[in-house]
Design a protein around this nucleic acid. Sequence first.
DNA 1: GTTCTAGAAC
DNA 2: GTTCTAGAAC
Length: 759
Amino acid sequence: MDVDGGSSSMGEEEKRKMMVVILVGAPGSGKSTFCDRVMRVSTRPWVRVCQDTISNGKSGTKTQCLTSAARALKDEKSVFIDRCNLDREQRADFVKLGSPQIDVHAVVFDLPAKLCISRSVKRVGHEGNLQGGKAAAVVNRMLQKKELPKLSEGFSRIAFCQNESDVQAAISAYSALGPLDTLPSGCFGQKSSDAKIQLGIMKFLKKVDAPMNAESKGNSLQNNVTTEITKENYSRCKGPEDIARTASKEEKEVEDLALSYADGCSSSDNIPTLAFPSISTADFQFDLEKAADIIVEKVSEFVTKLGNARLVLVDLSSGSKILSLVRAKAKQKNIDSDKFLTFVGDITRLYSKGGLCCNVIANAANWRLKAGGGGVNAAIFSAAGPALEIATKERAGSLTPGKAVVVPLPSTSPLFSREGVTHVIHVLGPNMNPQRPNFLNNDYIKGCKVLREAYSSLFEGFAFIVRSQEALCKDRTVKLGSVLSESTVDFEISCMNQVSNTDQKFKREGVYESERNKKSKGCQEELGSNIIGATSGEDNAKNEKNNGGVSKAWGSWAQALYHVAMHPEMHKNDVMEISDDIVVLNDLYPKAKRHLLVVARFEGLDRLADASKDHLELLRAMHAVGLKWAEKCLIEDKTLVFRLGYHSAPSMRQLHLHVISQDFDSKHLKNKKHWNSFNTPFFLDSVDVIEEIDKCGRATLKDDDRLLSMELRCHRCRSAHPNLPRLKSHIGNCRAPFPPLLLQNSRLVLGLNEDGTNQ
DNA sequence: GTTCTAGAAC
DNA sequence: GTTCTAGAAC
């Protein structure tokens, strides 16, 4: 149950929080039945405001409903708004009933129209008097106006029900709410529905019709492209409306997650698309013929690797020479026109002006990765707003020619909200312009090589995004279902969709370079030496692996464990056990009653991402030592339960295994990140890591920041809590059994009873 | 990783 | 006014 089970821990002084639950659905979708069933069993006082019966049993007005709802809230009763509420305008006044003390939820009955109609038709004596043959026409007409609710309308929670089991889950969730309970905020259960896609189609077609046709007339390939998109691919195209519901600040986090669950994952049919400008041919004056050859060569190399994804070469001018050269060459080479398109338009307005959905755009960046200059770089930075500059700075300070850096675009960026762009890949091509510093002096041997590398880096970066999104989806589909439907949120643990180690490392650094570039660094180093700011310090030198021209070293504060591992003799007071391979010490800031670290002593094994089959024996040894210490602690305190595992993306350098008791009773456990780093899939159980590395050679890391900012849920009963102090007071009392997932496969280490059985 | 602190949330 | 979070600095 998603319900906060800890009402006792909240104390008597806890203020009762009311709810307005706006039901959204056509006649016959099951709204009234929903109310009846919840109200029959709920211990929370509810009032059902039904427009069909509000006027002495007869149909009334919206105003009457509003008055009645306000009165009920004043009496400290929660309210169901039982009317169709199918469009935003219809809902708006009811949403306004919300306040800090009153949550506004939507429960959406997004059931097949056929079902609603057949129920309405069969219905005798329905309160709204909508029965018989008339029903079909009414339901159909109403559904045409349907506008699914969004968090940005002011809802704190939206649950979408698309089948009977979803409805049942929603009934259970609301039925179980006691007077003081709340439900977690966010958007739950949304799958790609026909209705949503239909809406997308309408908008998409409208936009495609206007500016694009004007520009692409007389251009056969482009018309061809347009036709392809509108006729075949529209339903697979994820428009910004779908991914960029703007949310109030407090909802954003939850919503972002919900979005990626709901949209990224469920619409298996949206096509990841990279829009890229021609690199180096504008300000860097690269020869157009040569550039076109390289584009076509690289595109044809990558389209086969990209699966479902598409590449789109974009140029602002309809008379663009590079576009026509590339089009001709692509045609000659028979490149699949489903996978590679050319497009005339502004790369920052592809969706809003061109109707083309591109989740990733490439930027022909400058080496400093700074805004301004001119051309595409200036346009993209300006359209994306400061969010892109900040996000870029976090990833990299500079770039060498031939390389690319992937920057996830924050949802605050207009490019994200308006255009649906989730990532920008900055790529730096070779510079042939004698007016600019570091130009290649007409050396096209080097120039072509660097340009090839640039496209490879760019496409590899895009391929990585595509792969990681696919992986993320599969991981999360499981979760989405369980959030709405049930009690234990079982995070899938699997080695499917494993991302290769190389990719993981690149992801960490956010920098992509082509295979060729990795092998021969000659060219880049010449330029690179003055471009990339040199880092100093012994540790940093050892510590920059795969830095790809951009340094992102461990901070000095992150080196503590590394120093202990390398020089344990200098930390005799802290170290509890030393061997050739490992050291054991108490975590300096324990997040539970007992919290130990088993640290590997191998130089170069900074984190789990670095571990491969070669390290299996070490990992097993670390596990054995961790287990030994857990058992030692259990002798002192039999009530403890331990879990052994790794953080997907640790903050401290040097591979370390956490051995942590599951009471989480510690003054050092202070924030969401602390909690979620031990209680979401970010924490990888040692047993699973060993099993996976044994099987697949690598552990699948879940180093997504969103996991660390997820809602706070009890690790035992999975109830959600609004803040850390509340969660802490709940876990102090919660005696629910651990979720089955943790009880399996020896993920938990429990004390033994006197008869030798687990306690 | 922590500490500090501004400002949001209550 | 107090509590809590989240971002910057280290």
